[in-house]
Amino acid sequence: MDISTVSDQLIRKFASRVAMSADDRACVSALPFKLRTIDPSTYMLREGQHPTRCAFILEGLAYRQKLTPNGEREIVSIVMPGEFVDLQNLFLEESDHDIQALTRLTFAEIPISALHGLIANCPVAGHALWIDALIESSIHREWLLNIGRRNARSRLAHLLCEFSVRFRTSADADMAYELPMTQEQLGDALGLTPVHVNRVLKSLEAAGFIAREKRLVSVIDWPGLRDAAEFNERYLHLKQTRL
C-alpha cells in the first residue's frame, strides 16, 4: 500500500463527514503517518499507556477491551476499516482501556501532534473528527443497552445486524460476511458464555434468519433478523455519511 493510497483513504474519510475544499484536502493529504501491519491479538495500546499516535485502520479489524482486576474481559467495541481507533486519545493523556488487533491489521499511525495541528489549521477537519467521535459514543450507548436490557437471542442478532450494516452491505438483498470473532470473543462482547453463544447461533440458523459456513455468515431473512434483534440503525447515524 503506497503513500498516495493511504492519503486518498484519509481524504475520503474526512470528506465522508463534511464538505471539503481543495485546501482542506491538501491539509489532510499532508498529514505524516507511519504504515504498520500487525498480527491478530497484538496490542495496539495498553491501559495506562501515554499515547503519542492515533491509528487509522486501512485493512482488518480491532477491538477495545476492559479487564477486571481478576482478568475477566469485556469487549466494548469493534473498530473497522476506514475508522480511527483512538480519537479520545487526542486530548486524554492516558489510555483507560486496551486495544488489540482482532484480525491481521494494517493501519496508518498519525502523530497526535500532527492531528492537533490539523484541527487548529483546518476547522473543517476538526468538525469531521467530532462527528466520528460522537458516532462512536452513540454506538457505545447502543452496546450498553444491548448487553443490559436485551435477551441473549436479541443481543447476538443485534450484533449480526450491526456488522451487516457497518460492513456496508445492502439491506435489500441477502448479506454475507466473514464473522471475525470466535465464540469466546462474541461471549465477551455480549456477556454470554461461549456455549450460550453457540446455542443462540444455532437457534438463529434454525429459524432461517442466517446460514453459516465456517466463519462465513449469510443473512437470509433480513426482516426476521431485524425483528429478533429489535434493530434500528438510527444509532449508526448513516445519514451523516456524505459519500
Rank of each mutant, 00 (worst) to 15 (best):
T5Q: 14
S7V: 15
Q9H: 15
Q9V: 05
R12Q: 15
K13S: 10
F14E: 04
F14R: 00
A15R: 10
S16P: 01
S16M: 03
V18Q: 10
A19M: 02
D23G: 08
D24V: 02
V28G: 09
A30V: 10
F33L: 07
K34H: 13
L35T: 12
L35P: 08
T37S: 09
P40M: 00
T42G: 06
L45P: 06
R46L: 14
P51W: 00
T52V: 15
I57N: 03
Q65G: 12
T68A: 10
T68V: 08
T68S: 12
N70T: 11
E72K: 12
E72I: 13
I75S: 03
I75H: 09
M80Q: 05
M80S: 10
M80E: 09
G82P: 10
F84E: 02
L87P: 00
Q88N: 10
L90S: 00
L90A: 03
L92S: 13
E94G: 08
S95C: 06
D98M: 04
D98W: 11
Q100Y: 15
A101Y: 01
R104E: 12
T106M: 01
T106A: 04
E109C: 11
I112K: 14
S113K: 15
A114E: 13
H116T: 14
G117Q: 14
L118F: 11
I119T: 10
I119H: 08
A120K: 02
A120R: 11
N121T: 11
C122P: 01
P123T: 01
A125C: 15
A125P: 03
H127T: 13
L129R: 04
D132W: 12
D132F: 07
A133W: 06
L134C: 07
S137L: 07
S138M: 11
I139E: 04
H140Y: 09
R141D: 13
R141L: 11
W143K: 14
L144P: 01
G148T: 12
R150W: 07
R150A: 02
S154E: 10
R155A: 03
A157T: 08
E162M: 15
F163M: 11
S164I: 10
S164G: 13
V165W: 02
R166S: 10
R166D: 06
F167D: 00
F167L: 04
F167G: 02
T169N: 14
S170R: 08
A171D: 08
A176V: 08
Y177V: 00
P180L: 00
Q183H: 14
Q185N: 07
Q185C: 09
L186D: 05
L186K: 01
L186R: 00
D188I: 04
A189Y: 08
G191F: 03
L192A: 01
H196F: 08
H196P: 05
H196L: 06
H196E: 11
V197H: 05
V200H: 04
L201F: 05
L204N: 04
E205C: 04
E205D: 06
G208R: 13
G208Y: 06
F209M: 12
R212S: 13
E213H: 13
K214A: 11
V217P: 01
I220Y: 05
I220V: 15
I220N: 14
W222Y: 15
W222V: 06
W222S: 01
G224Y: 09
D227L: 13
N232E: 07
N232C: 05
N232L: 05
L238K: 10
R242Q: 14
